[in-house]
Amino acid sequence: MSDVVNITIDGKECKAEKGMTILQVALREGIDIPTLCYHKDLEPYGGCRLCTVEIESRGRKNYVVSCLYPVEEGLVVKTRSPEVEKIRRIIVELLLARAPGSPELIKLKEEYGAKEEKFGKEPIFCILCGLCVRYCSEVKKKYAISFVQSGVKREISFIPEIALKECDKCKECFPLCPTSYAQALYLLTQALSGGPST
């Protein structure tokens, strides 16, 4: 039974298999950890950092993202310490400036006591969770959407040469988008390329 490890999440003792992440164990145990870029069919991405938790391992306190941190024997996890709450509150506040009105963010705002316009509004509506890009690449293998640019200029972009051929019959990424931006950007891409190819 060396493949089973014992960990504690919020005081609850849990058994987990080696290779699982904290988030996977928490989901199974019904412990809520918020996420924006996690999807069960996709490689963990670690971009939104909302699933950050506090861990204690070998006597040291640390903050890690639960979607990627692998469980180990004796791991103690706190999913809602004051510092974790602060991290999540600020992440939500930072994202609300970019995607005001996103229902998912509004829900998180209420849960973590975030301020709606702490950083004003600079709407772009994409929070760069990458769900659309990754779903299209990893699951559908169509590669119709790409991340482009770097740093604060990073954004997503449909590649018209592929999107106009493939997307109309798929659109599976639209409901994954926490802000409906993917759909809007697709329509824009279509319009700029001379309208729907039908």
């Binding site: 670690g46 971009g47 939104c48 950092r49 909302l50 991290i87 600020i90 992440i91 930072l94 994202l95 400036a97 970019r98 929070i127 760069l128 640019q149 770097s150 740093g151 604060v152 200029k153 990073r154």
Partner: peptide, 11 residues
């Protein structure tokens, strides 16, 4: 000059 992937750094 950063990658822009994670929220705390980028935003």
């Amino acid at each position: 000059e950063s990658c822009g992937k994670c929220v705390p750094c980028r935003e």
